[in-house]
Each structure stands twice: as C-alpha cells, then as structure tokens.
Amino acid sequence: MTQELLAQAQEKLSIYMQALSDTQYSAMPSPTLSLNQRGTIAGAAILQKHHIRLQPTLFEQNKTYFLEQVLPHELAHLIAHRFYGKVSPHGREWQHIMEGVFKRPAIRTHQLDISRLGLKRFSYACSCGEVALSIRRHNKVVNKQQSYICRTCRQTLAFVAEK
C-alpha cells in the first residue's frame, strides 16, 4: 500500500510541478518524496534537503485531502524557501504560492481525525475546558522544561489524566 500511495503522490507532484512552468517559479526542481513523517503532522517540507515527508497513515485515510491540500502546502514551503530565502513559514510569499499558483486555500493546519493513529494523549485543562497534549509535550511539563498556555483564556494548562 505504501508504494501505491507514494506513486499517487509522485504523479500529483508532477502535475503541480507542471503548473509552475508558466510562472516565475518555472526553474524549480522537483523535490523528493517519502512517506515517513511521524506523529500527527500531515506533512513536512525539509528545506535543506529539498524533500517532502508525508504521514502514511493519515495519507491512506485522507487521500484526496493529502493530494489536493497537504502536498501543495509542503511544496509551497520549498518554493518560498528557494525563491525568497528565509521568510515566515506561512507568510505572504507562501500564501501567494498556495492561492495564486496552486489555487488552493492557504490553510496552516489540518483538522484530520488523528484518533486512529494510536498515539498516547494526556488530558490538560484550563477554564475553557480540556486539551489533549502529546506524550512529548506532557514529558516537557513533567520535567519542568515547558508549560503550555490556553490560546483562548491564557491560563496555564494543568494536567488532568492520561487518555
């Protein structure tokens, strides 16, 4: 199944690369692809290696979304880096590429169902309610390396239970 997913992603990537041919980004070389992104991140652009990593389980469960949104999202990061240098990750250059070149909404984060990934989550709370943190973030709290603040009420999140 992994090889089939990779082949679908490669095929779609070549279509996006073709779309660049009539733009100022026509000299963009095609990046390499792999299905080895871990955790809940849908994809990652590895700027220094000109490489895109995709999360295989989420990809398999959400093929259309990955091919139509995640792949151009990560490719836009590589293009912005190559043509503009060090810029804000989701700044105006990236947004221009997403909306102007790929005709896709400039969405920063996915809202995919991650419950089937089998990742251990930890429940934290504030006055707004509960928030699930990853084991990595939980360990940072336990080891007193980091605390997390609710984006809405600005309270420090407090540990409730393991999920």
Rank of each mutant, 00 (worst) to 15 (best):
M1K: 15
E4H: 15
A7H: 14
Q8G: 11
Q10I: 11
K12Y: 02
K12R: 14
L13Q: 03
Y16I: 10
M17R: 11
Q18D: 13
D22Y: 05
A27Q: 15
M28S: 06
M28Q: 15
P29I: 14
L33H: 02
G39F: 00
T40L: 01
I41Y: 03
I46D: 04
Q48E: 15
Q48H: 14
H51A: 07
L54Y: 00
L54A: 02
P56S: 04
P56Q: 00
F59Y: 12
E60D: 14
Q61T: 12
N62C: 05
N62Q: 06
T64N: 15
F66C: 05
L67T: 09
Q69M: 10
Q69L: 09
V70R: 01
P72N: 04
I79C: 08
I79E: 09
A80R: 08
H81P: 12
F83A: 08
Y84F: 15
Y84V: 07
Y84E: 12
G85M: 14
K86G: 10
K86M: 10
G91F: 05
R92D: 09
E93T: 07
E93S: 09
W94R: 03
Q95E: 09
H96S: 10
G100N: 01
F102Q: 02
K103G: 05
P105E: 03
A106G: 08
I107R: 07
T109H: 14
I114Q: 00
K120D: 06
F122M: 00
S123K: 03
C126A: 05
G129K: 01
G129P: 07
V131A: 01
A132H: 03
L133K: 07
S134C: 03
R136C: 03
R137V: 00
H138W: 01
K140P: 03
K140W: 00
K140C: 03
V142E: 08
Q146E: 13
T152Y: 10
C153G: 07
L157D: 01
A158L: 14
A158W: 02
A158P: 03
F159I: 10
V160R: 09
